[in-house]
Computed example of a mutant assay.
Amino acid sequence: MSHRARSAVSAALIVLACLLTPLGALSAWALYGIGDTARYEATMAPLAADADVRDAIAAGVTDGIMREVHVRPRMQGPVNSFVRDAVRSFTGTEAYRTAWEAANIAAHDALMRALRDDSEGAVTVDLATVTERVKRQLADDHMPLANRIPVEHTRITVLAAGDLTRLRKGFHVLEVAAFWLPAASVVLTLAGILVAVCRRRAVLSTGLGTALGAALLGVAIAVGRRLTLADLPPGVSPTAAGAVYDALTSTLRLACWLLLALGVTVAAAALLSGVYARHRQAGTEEAPAEAQAEGASRVRA
């Protein structure tokens, strides 16, 4: 194989590997970060203490209670404030964190069933458990008619039904590719470097391509966040949804930074090794020239 053909094949393999690397990170995140119940639970658990999420929960539960409690118009404002304060206070307790974890596990199970099966309907978080506990707290605070508050299944939409079909197809592809894409990326990278005429240049290109792919994936995550918050169902808090999005994509964003750092490090190492090699070669070429000049001067003497 000629040098030109080897360079072309090497370039094609390295470009393909750099394209597959961010896709491999995305598929691995979908399978092991979102698809795994234990990791999902660990990701969502800290959100129980997030101020925006607590405000959204307090608003949802309060609205659900007020729809079922009939008070005089002039009393609606004070009762609404009293209930909201009670719910907001409850969101700082251990009982709330337990209810939050249980609701999220149920929502995750529903989400996985929706993505892996052909079930229809929106994926929601049921706030009935939170409402029941708030009802008890209001009764303990001697709120009139608190014991008569019905525990309705107030739900917060996590994923709208219209998005399921598109996301289901994408999730199936990512599940299958979670192992094969990273493996293919490594194999193609090694093959591209081995085939290259100048392997140092191939390593440099691989590092720069990996860094560029990681940067593009980071941009895609940011664009996805903006699109997600721009298309929220009515009544969903954008700040709370943003906190959830950031929590779910934290591992993927970390993978982006790691890939970016790896790519820059590999490229810098290849560049510095090239500079060192040229410097060393220049030194070895200067030594014989100096020896020849010294020998010529001795002959003249």
Rank of each mutant, 00 (worst) to 15 (best):
H3E: 12
S7Y: 00
S7W: 00
A11H: 06
V15D: 04
L16V: 15
L16A: 15
C18W: 00
L23E: 03
W29N: 09
A30F: 01
G33V: 10
G35R: 11
T37E: 15
A38E: 15
R39D: 07
T43H: 01
M44E: 07
A45F: 06
P46E: 02
A48H: 03
A48K: 04
A49T: 13
D50Q: 03
D50T: 08
A51W: 12
R54D: 08
D55G: 12
A56P: 04
I57D: 08
A59Q: 11
I65H: 03
I65F: 07
I65D: 04
M66C: 05
M66A: 04
Q76D: 06
V83N: 03
A86D: 09
T93G: 03
A95M: 01
A99F: 01
D109K: 15
A110S: 14
L111T: 12
R113F: 01
V125S: 10
T131C: 04
V134R: 07
A139Y: 03
D140E: 15
D141Q: 14
P144F: 09
A146W: 05
N147S: 14
R148A: 13
L159F: 08
L159A: 11
R166G: 12
R168Y: 07
H172A: 14
V176Q: 07
A177K: 03
A178R: 12
F179H: 09
L181C: 09
A184Q: 07
R201Y: 10
L208M: 13
G218E: 11
A220P: 01
V236H: 05
L248A: 12
L248D: 02
S250F: 04
R253K: 11
A255D: 11
G263H: 05
V264L: 15
V266G: 00
A268W: 00
A269M: 10
A269W: 09
A270Q: 04
L271P: 01
L271V: 06
R278P: 02
A282E: 12
E285S: 05
A287Y: 08
A287V: 14
E290W: 05
E290G: 13
A293K: 09
A296F: 07
V299P: 02
